[in-house]
């Protein structure tokens, strides 16, 4: 007689089946490509602007301030210009590898460790985009992100896309990560300005801070109620994001019964959250300098779709482009 209770054995079997699910790799490939582009911007732009020797080199060698090297920088000989450039160039090379899908998990590991070493070296110059991108790169280490939309795929199959199956659980981790980001950033917003007692004025005042501005934002005073509405929407969006997990779960099995499941699927809760999130990030990128944060975050969004939906969307875009092209050649 088994010593494991039947219900526990059943749950374990369901968990094993869940973790063992496989799907095609479009979502992971898009996550890899967009994250790779974000990495190139994150490290490449400071390099082009001549900031490497200021940011990531110790004061003793001409940098801005004394730096505390982590294990990798120490192993490479300390925060010298040579170390900084080795890290910058290897991270950028790994970024190119990610975009092209060359090198698999090893490239993601090099990219993640490089970015972690640089952002940890001078913590004053790092932003939340670094932390999120390092997380993304670790998820790419765990995943198989290069089976489609990659140079190796093109080389092996003669086509850019492949229907080879990969483990689905890394995509579930991507969905978990974006949810943790939104929900906990919402929990952090304890300022009175995010609440009714503060008049929902948080976004108006945040946009008056020079550190985020492209230019003066005094004009927002004329549309102050809109900023209040945006404050409420952003706060609610973040705090209620766990509903998106529920929406995704309900969409997996639409055939099952239940009023809540029916409500979520009928009112397209997943689409509503995705559209609000995309609009919010694009809006932020238009009025605030948040560096590569928008791109790093948007890399997560394709994973909210199933790979079959990504393929369908790609076919739709392809057909639209073909119609446009044939339309313009007729004109």
């Amino acid at each position: 007689m088994s010593v494991v209770p039947r219900s526990l054995a059943g749950r374990w079997a369901r968990w094993v089946a869940f973790v063992g699910q496989r799907e095609t790799g479009e979502c992971l490939a898009l996550f890899r490509i967009i994250s790779g582009l974000a990495l190139l911007i994150s490290i490449g732009v400071p390099a082009i602007n001549g900031l490497v020797d200021g940011f990531w080199v110790d004061l003793a060698y001409g940098g801005m301030r004394p730096l505390k090297p982590g294990w990798l920088v120490a192993a490479l000989g300390g925060a010298t210009p040579a170390t900084a450039w080795i890290l910058v160039l290897s991270t950028l090379t790994a970024g190119v590898g990610l975009v092209l899908g060359v090198g698999g998990r090893v490239v993601a590991l090099i990219a993640g460790q490089g970015l972690m070493a640089l952002s940890g070296l001078n913590t004053h110059t790092r932003g939340s985009f670094d932390a999120l991108l390092i997380n993304s790169l670790w998820l790419l280490v765990l995943a198989e992100p290069t089976v489609t939309l990659s140079l190796p795929c093109r080389y092996k199959t003669g086509k850019w896309t492949s229907h080879q199956l990969v483990a689905a659980w890394p995509r579930y981790l991507i969905i978990a990560q974006i949810g943790v980001l939104y929900f906990f950033t919402g929990l952090h917003k304890v300022s009175i300005y995010w609440t009714p007692a503060g008049g929902f004025s948080a976004l108006y005042y945040i946009l008056q801070q020079p550190s985020w501005q492209f230019t003066s934002m005094h004009w927002l005073a004329r549309v102050y109620p809109l900023t209040q509405l945006a404050t409420v929407l952003a706060w609610l969006f973040e705090l209620t994001w766990p509903l998106m997990w529920l929406a995704l779960y309900y969409r997996r099995h639409p055939e099952r019964s239940g009023r809540l499941r029916g409500f979520f699927n009928r009112f397209r809760v997943r689409s509503i959250y995705a559209v609000v999130g995309l609009s919010m990030h694009v809006g932020i990128a238009m009025v605030m300098d948040v560096g590569p944060f928008t791109l790093v975050t948007l890399a997560f969004y394709p994973s909210l779709l199933r790979p079959s939906e990504v393929r369908l969307a790609a076919r739709g875009v392809g057909a639209w482009l073909t119609r446009r092209r044939s339309g313009s050649s007729t004109n």
């Binding site: 932390a131 300005y193 945040i206």
Partner: peptide, 20 residues
Amino acid sequence: YAGVRQRWRMFVAPHRHPAK
């Protein structure tokens, strides 16, 4: 070592007394 830090203190509060 994996880099999974999760401190998401973004736009926690407006800084009412910033500097240029």
